[in-house]
Design a protein around this nucleic acid. Structure first.
Lengths: 263, 263
DNA sequence: ATAACCGTTCCCCATAGCCAAACGCACGGT
DNA sequence: ACCGTGCGTTTGGCTATGGGGAACGGTTAT
């Protein structure tokens, strides 16, 4: 048996930050997301807050249009998409890599993605589906642990040593599937291999049945992020196929690097 | 001269909501977005808050990972993309229309989009660029006024009468370009035409040089949202071309409606 | 050197945010 | 028809919390 991953990591509701009310409001938003909608009592019970407190927060978030309300269910609103879409647009790598990711998906027929690192996690900025691509749970903005997937390992391998250690320290190496790297020494060896080879390969380490080939995008020694192609073990079991994909991924990464240089 | 549109509408910092701190925090986030990053003093001056207050809010938002910090500049973080991506995925219309929008963009070579209404504004959920598509400023999650663009008018035309009035009342009819409909009677006539024709046409009403053809997506009498194809006046000046596009848009809307019925 | 600017820290006060309890309303079982 | 139970809402009062102002430390420009 594998530990089921904590799909979303909300901030603990009480947190040593100057403005507690904001922390609580956002914790409530994240909990609503986790539950796909929730009501006052439900949330009050979950956090151990009084109903009136939760009610006040929800009212505030609805009045400011960050949440929507259907009857007694509160939902995450699209205003966050507005902020998120802006944040994505601010990421150079998104703008540079997007067209190349589309090409990569079209050429391979699989699913191609770009991701960057933020606060020690990988964040998917864009995904393009080829004709044979399989749908995964990962939607736009999904945040993944860096040790547990292709883009993650490609990113992790090219961060400064002390950041790698800090990240491993902060998040640990939670087990997603039975293939997830959970041993620290094994991880460091793997990262060394990634650096030598130039690509990171993910053998169902995050999702059962899903493999992935990823390559970092680097400019002047600075890591910008990583790109990847992923698909089912069914196809990715064939070494020659994976090899072809790996070359395409690497070639694309180089194209992106060149575009990045003269951005 | 046309009035320059208020690109982003932040909530006023002081707002009659139960939790003022949350309102302030989010107002600060929106202001950072508007300024493409900002510092403590700058924000304190803007809102008339003390520096220590702003500092507390920023510290909280960084600790909870909603903002990032580069030196003395605070930036909108990708955590909002995570929430936004989730909110988008929850929208049925996004899931249903996405593949059709890709096809529409490929067939026309122009830019195709899906949008839904939330709090009286149109929100773009997805955009696909064809080979000749022109890049516009509208990014993912952009919120537009409904009277001023194709998808907006297609949506507005199919809302219940009292909602239309409430929306016009709330937001008014700000002038984006010299072609924007700013007269209430003219708007109601236009909406009637949209209902008769089944498509809404935008002649540079929101952006100079950009035209657009849109159609609503309706299920069981309920409006789900709208889809559109937009392009430069250069090409969209040709009536036959626009007519072809209009038919494609309408056909696509019907396909989406059928898929929606059996979702 | 010195001034001007930034973010940060400190401390005190008013009030904003919190809780508990009571309230209104809609169901649903009896 | 009735009451019990579940929901969200409202109220009021206590106290912690978030606010402001002023002083501090660091960096940059003059």
């Amino acid at each position: 048996m594998t530990t089921q991953p904590p799909a979303f990591d909300a901030q603990p509701p009480e947190f040593d930050a100057p403005i507690k009310a904001t922390t609580r409001s956002m914790a409530i938003v994240e909990e609503i997301r986790k539950r796909d909608g929730a009501g006052v009592t439900e949330l009050a019970d979950h956090f151990g807050f009084s109903k009136s407190t939760v009610h006040d927060h929800l009212t505030t978030l609805v009045e400011t249009k960050y949440l929507t309300r259907n009857g007694d269910e509160y939902e995450v609103g699209l205003r966050f998409l507005s902020l998120g879409g802006y944040a994505r647009k601010q990421q150079e790598l998104y703008e540079i890599a997007k067209p190349e990711i589309d090409d990569l998906a079209a050429e391979t027929g699989e699913s191609a993605k770009v991701a960057v690192e933020e606060y020690g996690r990988g964040v998917y900025l864009y995904q393009s589906l080829g004709d044979n691509a399989i749908r995964t749970d990962s939607h736009l903005g999904t945040r993944v642990y860096l040790h547990s997937c292709g883009v993650g390992k490609a990113i992790l391998a090219h961060l400064p040593e002390e950041r790698i250690e800090a990240i491993v320290e902060e998040y640990g190496l939670p087990e997603w599937t039975k293939y997830t790297i959970t041993d620290e020494d094994a991880l460091y060896e793997e990262l060394e291999r990634v650096r030598e080879r130039g690509t990171a390969i993910d053998h169902e380490e995050r999702i059962r049945g899903l493999r992935c080939v990823a390559a970092p995008v680097i400019r002047n020694g600075d890591l910008l992020g990583a790109i990847s192609v992923s698909g089912p073990t069914k196809r990715f079991g064939d070494d020659a196929y994976v090899q072809d994909i790996a070359e395409l991924v690497q070639d694309t990464a180089r194209v992106v690097e060149i575009n990045a240089k003269y951005w």
